[in-house]
Amino acid sequence: MADSVTVADLVDNIRLDVLYGEDLLADRKITTSDISRPGLELTGYFNYYPAKRVQLLGITETSFAKGMTSDDLLQVMRQMCQPETPAFVISTQLEPPEELLQAAQESKIPVLGTKMTTSRVLSNMTNYLEGKLAERQSLHGVLVDIYGVGVLITGDSGVGKSETALELVKRGHRLIADDRVEVYQQDEQTLVGQAPAILAHLLEIRGIGIIDVMNLFGAGAVRSETDIDLIVHLESWSPDKKFDRLGNGDETQKIFDVIVPKISIPVKTGRNLAIIIEAASMNFRARSMGYDATKVFDDNLNRLIKQNSKNNK
């Protein structure tokens, strides 16, 4: 988990315009993903002013400011410009109040602008900051995008995870991370996985070593991150181990607060794991769209039993 994000990173990723403080961006730190819309503060109420947040002013705030006297507005803006305040953002291509620019210059706080509406820029900044500042967990496994399904392949070391990922890449799917997957929770139902910077686009194959997937297979063979929709756990086959044969198991794994569906696949000589995982991903996608092959089988079986019962009467 990153402790902070610079205002320079925010400007680059959200594509904000710098109205004041170009030379200040790299030194200003953002430590929370919450965004403040300072409405009550414009009236002089500062009892609970969240100074550590990015301050976003839209049509409502700037319209209210126009009705204030210059002295009163300057006093309020100076109170809003605290040492820990990262930056001010003006939405909808509005002109920032002169009093804000004066107070920001006195306190050396950047003032940013954007053509986006207040709701849009608020959503974009929140999503970006939540992704960067969220708590992270490092998991051992391989993350692959298969037909738009983020599949986390887990299993003991040496079971064949990386080799399977290589075969999946050759079949047109995209690698996100090999060996270590950095995972964070985006919201109540979504996990996002990405590769550590040092391992991005790289795959380790025993006997060959490290290969650069993007260099060998092209930019279309990799992704920087993806949601984790399904966990496929590879286990060495054993006659004593029972595996789900009908697909009606409800195995899951909890990561942070998110419950992720999980499938255990036996690894045995002669099995094409890449094709099996590809089929598992397509089946998962079909089930999420309302088609359940296991239910179809059960319905067909019940229909056959009823038909045989009638014929035997």
Rank of each mutant, 00 (worst) to 15 (best):
L191V: 01
D257K: 13
V222S: 09
D244H: 05
T226W: 15
D227Y: 15
D250N: 10
E251S: 14
D187T: 15
P266V: 02
N215F: 09
H201S: 08
G270P: 00
I265P: 05
I228H: 11
N215A: 13
R171I: 08
P261A: 06
N215Y: 14
P239F: 04
I255A: 08
Q253C: 05
N215R: 09
T190K: 02
G172L: 01
G247D: 01
G172D: 07
N272G: 00
A195Y: 07
R245W: 01
D187S: 10
R206M: 05
P261Y: 13
A195K: 00
K170H: 10
I259R: 14
D187P: 03
D227V: 15
V267N: 07
A221V: 05
I198K: 07
Q185F: 03
P239N: 11
P266Q: 04
G193C: 03
H201Q: 11
E188G: 02
Q253I: 10
V260Q: 05
S238V: 07
Q194N: 06
N272I: 13
E235A: 15
A219Q: 09
I263R: 07
G270L: 08
P261Q: 04
S238H: 15
I276T: 14
I231C: 03
K268V: 04
R206H: 01
G209S: 13
I176M: 09
E225V: 14
L191S: 00
G209V: 07
Q185T: 01
V260C: 05
V169D: 06
L199P: 05
K170G: 07
V183R: 06
E204H: 11
Q186A: 14
T269K: 08
T190N: 04
V232I: 14
P196S: 02
I176A: 06
L202Y: 14
G249T: 08
I275G: 04
I231M: 09
F256R: 10
V232Q: 15
T252D: 09
V260D: 00
D178P: 10
I176S: 08
S236I: 12
R206Q: 02
L202V: 02
I255Q: 05
E167T: 08
Q189P: 00
G207H: 02
G220Y: 07
K262Y: 02
R180L: 12
S238R: 14
H233S: 15
F243P: 00
L203R: 05
V181N: 05
I259T: 14
P266C: 05
D212E: 07
D250P: 03
K241G: 01
I275N: 06
L230H: 10
D212P: 05
S236G: 11
I208R: 03
K170V: 01
P261T: 06
I259H: 13
V222M: 10
I263P: 05
R180Q: 12
W237D: 09
R174S: 04
R223W: 10
I231W: 02
V183F: 13
A274Q: 01
K242Q: 13
V181G: 13
E204L: 11
S236K: 15
L216A: 08
D250A: 12
S236T: 11
